[in-house]
């Protein structure tokens, strides 16, 4: 009986699902999403690649010294690197990320 009433009520309710490709659920303002990196701010201290639990940050050398490369296909979005970066060069976004055809597009330098 309880479910019958619930089923009848559902005819008059707003639907609980969304029509996915047309409508999208926006992530909340505090969502931990993809990373972005501002290379000009980086001082090459190396904290980010030493602290990363998923080994998603590799070292890269250029004429200024060691700089991080972010392999976002490995990233687990824990954002320790964002918290630890002394120059705030690593920024967090709300972007959930999307499917890519080419893995190299997930390398952020």
């Amino acid at each position: 009986m309880v479910t019958s009433f619930e089923a009848i009520k559902n005819f008059f309710r707003k639907r609980a699902t969304i029509l996915y490709p047309e409508e999208k659920i926006e992530p909340s303002a505090t969502f931990r999403g993809m990373l972005s990196f501002e290379r000009s701010l980086c001082i090459g201290c190396g904290l980010c690649w030493r602290v990363c639990p998923a080994s998603a940050i590799k070292q890269d050398r250029d004429d200024k010294g060691a700089r991080p490369v972010f392999l976002l296909d490995r990233c687990i979005f824990c954002h320790i690197c964002v918290e630890i970066c002394p120059k705030k060069a690593i920024k967090a976004s709300r972007d959930r990320g999307s499917l890519v055809m080419d893995k190299s597009s997930l390398r952020v330098k």
Partner: peptide, 19 residues
């Protein structure tokens, strides 16, 4: 369950793996 997961996302920043 969905609204509870939305709350988790808003409080913690992650929907399921909250961190």
């Amino acid at each position: 369950r969905e609204p509870v997961l939305d709350l988790m996302e808003e409080i913690t920043g992650g929907r399921v793996t909250t961190g």
